Simulated assay, not measured.
Amino acid sequence: MSLTKGLFVTFEGGEGAGKSTQMRLLADSLRARGHDVLTTREPGGSTGAEAVRHVLLSGAAEAYGVRMEAILFAAARSDHVEQVIRPALERGTIVLCDRFMDSSRVYQGITGNLEQGFMETLERVAVNGVIPDRTIIFDLPAVIGLERARRRAADERPDRFEKEQLETHEKRREAFLDIAEADPERCSVVDATRPVDEIAAEVLSLVEALLPREDESHPSTAEVAS
């Protein structure tokens, strides 16, 4: 089955929430059903954005302040959207992305204390009309997520965001939940404390509900500007 227009699904949540694992499992399930699937991530996902990713996660931009970080995230997102996401959606591909605009709303906007108007302007320019059809928010207590992230990283140093205080991570958790409450048509909250296979089944059902039956075309709700 092929889609006449693509489907854009984003995966959000705090550190160690299991987004990457669930995105991989969903991609495998959808491909097994015959769908064309692209998996990608932020920051990164395109050549230009991957270069910015290193600057951001290494902490090299931290000294210049959260406003500069927000601008760099927006620049990376713009390149990612125009070079990777938009073309894939126009081909009819299902695009799965590990983090997108909601992470900027939470990390730079809420816990970075940047003005709402500034963040909204950056977002509008960066996404340029490409809005997720479905955003899945993986929710779990910050203390559990941080422990998972540290076990996963093993001997690696925590990145720019993993090293922050527990209170900050819990504030981000609440911010993601607030986004979901404000936009229930786009966002679905998934309890990420459960077994991996149980979570995967729920994620698949959330996305399958957006796919067309074989005798239908899919009018994607992703706003893809021409």
Rank of each mutant, 00 (worst) to 15 (best):
A180F: 14
A182N: 10
A75F: 00
A209C: 11
A126Q: 00
G44P: 11
Q108H: 00
E216Y: 10
R172E: 07
L211K: 09
S46T: 14
S226G: 11
V106K: 10
E162N: 02
L7V: 03
F73R: 02
Q165K: 14
E147N: 13
R124V: 06
N113I: 04
S2T: 15
H80C: 00
E198C: 08
R24V: 12
P219H: 15
V66Y: 10
A61V: 01
S220K: 13
I131R: 09
E162T: 06
E69C: 00
V95D: 05
D183A: 04
S217C: 15
R41T: 12
V190R: 03
P195S: 01
V190K: 09
A126P: 01
E62F: 04
E181S: 14
E62Q: 13
N113Q: 15
P87M: 01
V196W: 11
I71K: 08
A153S: 03
V66H: 09
K163T: 14
T10Y: 12
L146V: 11
L114A: 05
I71H: 12
E115F: 04
D28Y: 11
H35R: 05
Q22S: 03
I137Y: 15
F73E: 06
D36M: 02
V143G: 08
P43E: 05
R134S: 13
Q116K: 13
L25N: 07
R86P: 02
A182Y: 05
A209P: 09
H35E: 06
G109W: 02
L96R: 05
D215F: 08
E82M: 09
E167W: 02
S205N: 01
L166D: 02
R91L: 05
R148W: 03
I85K: 04
